[in-house]
Simulated scan of single mutants.
Amino acid sequence: MRVNCVGAIIFDASDRLLLIKRGHPPGMGLWSIPGGRLEPGETDAAGVRREVLEETGLHVEVGRLAGTVDRPGPGGVTYVIRDYLASVSGGVPTAGDDAADVRWCGLDELARLPLAEGLLESLTGWGVLPS
């Protein structure tokens, strides 16, 4: 079974990436970009806005599709994840929903954090990380 998911790639004015620490499986304890499953009938853009607000307390404007990845899930599920660039339009970063923590992370810090599998490779491959 394939499950449609979305994620948000958000940078601040200092080129720091917004990350959340997963509070539940899959990936509990790992840092990733905010996102999750689409609800029935929900558009990608609406899903990105909802997931970011639920997990970080931030309102975002959704930009272009950065890339798509397939990740294996429990019970033979495949998560089809479409990650979009987004920019903050309001709110204060506060961990919520299934996020145990939220933070802005400099590129030099990414290599030192326990990141979700394939995250850094995908962001690098899509050419979305600031140089």
Rank of each mutant, 00 (worst) to 15 (best):
D83T: 08
L123A: 04
V6L: 09
L58Q: 03
G7R: 04
G29F: 04
E61L: 05
V102M: 09
G29K: 04
G75T: 08
Y79Q: 01
T56D: 00
P130H: 07
R22Y: 12
L85A: 12
A66L: 01
D70S: 13
H24A: 15
I9M: 08
D98H: 10
L110W: 08
T56F: 01
D15F: 08
A46K: 04
L38F: 05
G67E: 06
G63C: 13
I20Q: 01
P93F: 07
S131Y: 06
E51M: 12
T56V: 13
L110N: 09
G67P: 14
T78S: 07
A45P: 00
D70T: 10
W104T: 03
G90H: 03
G27N: 12
G76M: 06
G91S: 05
C105G: 08
Y79N: 14
R49T: 11
S87Q: 09
S87T: 14
A99S: 15
G23S: 06
L115R: 10
K21C: 14
L30I: 06
I81K: 10
D70C: 05
G67W: 02
D98K: 05
E39H: 14
D108H: 13
L123G: 06
G76P: 13
A86S: 11
V6E: 06
V80N: 11
G36E: 03
T124F: 08
P114Y: 04
V6Y: 05
R16W: 05
L123H: 02
D12K: 00
A111I: 11
P74K: 01
G118L: 15
G106A: 15
D83S: 15
G36T: 06
I10V: 15
P130W: 09
V128W: 02
I33E: 00
E121S: 13
I33H: 03
S87E: 14
L65R: 11
T56L: 02
D83M: 14
I33D: 01
R112H: 13
L129W: 03
E121V: 14
L110G: 12
L113G: 12
R112Q: 14
L53K: 07
E55W: 01
S131M: 11
A95I: 13
L58G: 00
D83G: 06
G106M: 11
L30R: 14
V6D: 06
F11W: 08
G96S: 06
R22D: 08
R22F: 04
G106I: 04
G91T: 00
H59I: 00
G67Y: 12
N4E: 15
P25Y: 08
P130L: 09
G91Y: 10
S32Q: 02
R22P: 08
P40C: 07
E121C: 07
G76V: 09
A99N: 11
G90W: 01
P40Y: 07
S89W: 07
S131H: 14
G47K: 00
R64Q: 14
P74S: 00
G23C: 01
G47L: 00
G90N: 06
L110R: 15
G127A: 07
L129C: 10
D101K: 11
V92R: 11
D101E: 15
L120P: 12
D12C: 03
G96L: 07
G23Y: 00
G75R: 15
G23H: 02
P72T: 06
A46G: 10
A99H: 11
S89C: 15
V3L: 12
R82F: 07
A46L: 11
L58F: 00
